[in-house]
Amino acid sequence: MANANRQFQVTDPAVLHALVRAQPLATLVIAHDGALHANHIPLYPDPTRGPNGSLIGHVARANTLWPLLPQQAVAVFHGPQAYVSPSWYPSKALDGKQVPTWNYATVHAHGALSAFDDPVRLRAILHTLSEQHEAHRPDPWSIDDAPPDYIDKMLRAIVGIELAVERWEGVWKVSQNRVDTDRAGVVQGLMAEGTPAAADMAALVRAALVA
C-alpha cells in the first residue's frame, strides 16, 4: 500500500473513517512465529482513543487470535470495487492500446492489537455495535431486549480487541489516471452493468471526474 501511486492515495481521516463505518468487516492480519493469521472481524473506529484513533471489536473466546496478543497488526477494509473494460474508453478508438483494469477503494489501518475482557467495556462495545447496525431499522434490536443473565453468559464467551492505529493508508483507484472522456465512459459502462456494486464504483469515478 505504501508504494501505491500517489495519484490514488487518500489521507483525509474523515473519508477513511467513512469507508470503515460503511464497510466494517475487516480482514485482520497478524504475524506470529513466522506464520500469518487472518481473521474477519467487524470493527468500528473510535477517534477519541489515541492520536490516530482506535478500531474496536470482539472475537469469540474460542478464537485462537486473542491469546497471541499483543501483536502488531493490519486491518484491511474493502470498499466498492469493479472490473473496468477497455471498451468503455473513447480513447480506445484512437490506437487500440488499452487494457482492462480493476478499480477499488481500500483502507489499511496499521497498529498495535491488544485484547481485553472487562465485562463493563465489553457490554459498552455490544451496545455501540448494535446501535450502529440497527439504527436504520423501523424496530431496532437492542442488547437490553435480551434477558440480562443471557447477555452475561454471552459476555463471558467473547473477548474484546482494540487496534491502536499508528498509521492509516487509503487507496482510491477510481480512474483518476484517465482523461475526462475515458472516466465518463467508465461511469457510463459501470451504470450499464446494472448491479449495486457497479453503481457504487460509478459514484466514486463520477466524484473523481468532477473533483
Rank of each mutant, 00 (worst) to 15 (best):
R121T: 15
S114N: 05
Y104N: 05
D145G: 06
V120N: 08
I151H: 03
A192L: 11
W172Y: 14
K153N: 09
S130F: 04
V107E: 04
S130C: 11
T128S: 06
V120S: 13
T106M: 13
M201R: 04
V187H: 07
V120T: 15
V165R: 01
L155I: 12
G189D: 08
A184Q: 15
L209Q: 13
I158N: 02
P119L: 08
A112P: 00
P138A: 08
D200K: 08
V159S: 10
G111F: 03
L204F: 08
P140L: 03
N103L: 09
R137L: 15
I161Q: 01
G170C: 03
P196G: 06
E162C: 02
V186D: 08
P196T: 07
G170E: 01
S114P: 02
R167Q: 15
E166I: 01
P147F: 06
G111C: 05
Y104E: 03
A157W: 05
E169Q: 15
G170A: 00
A207T: 09
V179C: 07
A192T: 05
I158L: 03
L190D: 07
A115D: 05
D149L: 07
A202S: 10
P119A: 08
D145C: 06
I151Q: 02
L155W: 10
V210M: 10
S175F: 11
I125H: 08
S142F: 03
A207Q: 14
L209T: 14
A203K: 14
E169P: 00
A115Y: 05
D200V: 00
V107I: 11
S175M: 11
Q188D: 14
D152C: 02
A197W: 04
A112F: 00
T181V: 13
A164M: 03
L155H: 07
G189E: 04
Q132K: 08
M191W: 00
G194D: 08
H110W: 09
D149A: 13
D139L: 12
D118H: 02
A124V: 02
K153S: 12
G189T: 07
R121K: 10
T195Y: 06
H110L: 05
